[in-house]
């Protein structure tokens, strides 16, 4: 039985799969954020799935994808608290802005699965996978560092790559790449 059916068979009945997509053979399953720990336990402990290796965890900011395509994004104003209001909200609720993607691997069958969790801006907290896979230690810290998504239950959630009092989350799409925009994000106090 191919992977997609198996995943649906085990996760589907409990409503743990929101959507399944496939791109060039890479299967990804979107799961509800609140159930991420259950999903991971199921994926790891079900013999038919057996995803026993966490390859990577990372975040994606879908700000530009969610935006209606009318004009290229302009310079951002004042930190990143502001851009939430900037978001045009005419066509109903836009999809959650961030994704956290977990890359799982089944060592026995060499199958890979992407598990996706969508994180909305008003609820930036995901359960940490640290109790299941210690491999998620630094990746989760990095996501916190780069996107500002918190991980509940992580033992040592602090910035990983940037210094501790860095004021922004640089991998967000509204973080300016150069010039004064970036300067404005950094507050130097002498």
């Amino acid at each position: 039985m191919d992977l997609k059916k198996r995943v649906e068979q085990y996760l589907g009945p409990e409503g743990l799969v929101v959507a399944m997509t496939e791109c060039q053979g890479d299967l990804s399953a979107e799961v509800p954020k609140k159930n991420i720990l259950d999903v991971m336990h199921l994926l790891r402990d079900t013999p038919d799935l057996g995803f026993n290796f966490l390859s990577d965890v990372f975040g994606v900011d879908n700000l530009d994808l969610n935006k209606p395509k009318k004009k290229p994004k302009k310079k951002t104003e004042e930190g990143e608290g502001a851009e939430a209001e900037e978001e045009p909200k005419e066509k109903g609720p836009s999809p959650p802005r961030y994704e956290v993607v977990y890359l799982l691997l089944c060592l026995e069958r060499n199958e890979r699965l992407q598990v996706k969790v969508r994180v909305a801006e008003d609820d930036m907290e995901v359960d940490s996978l640290y109790p299941i896979w210690k491999a998620s230690d630094w990746p989760e810290r990095e996501i916190f560092d780069m996107f500002g998504i918190r991980f509940k239950g992580h033992p040592n959630l602090k910035r990983l790559l940037m210094w501790d009092d860095f004021p922004a989350h640089p991998l967000r799409k509204d973080y300016p790449l150069e010039g004064q925009g970036e300067e404005r994000h950094l507050v130097y106090d002498d």
């Binding site: 033992p155 959630l157 602090k158």
Partner: peptide, 9 residues
């Protein structure tokens, strides 16, 4: 929003 959420080791 940028404060350190965990205690410093």
């Amino acid at each position: 929003m940028n404060q350190n959420p965990t205690s410093q080791t």
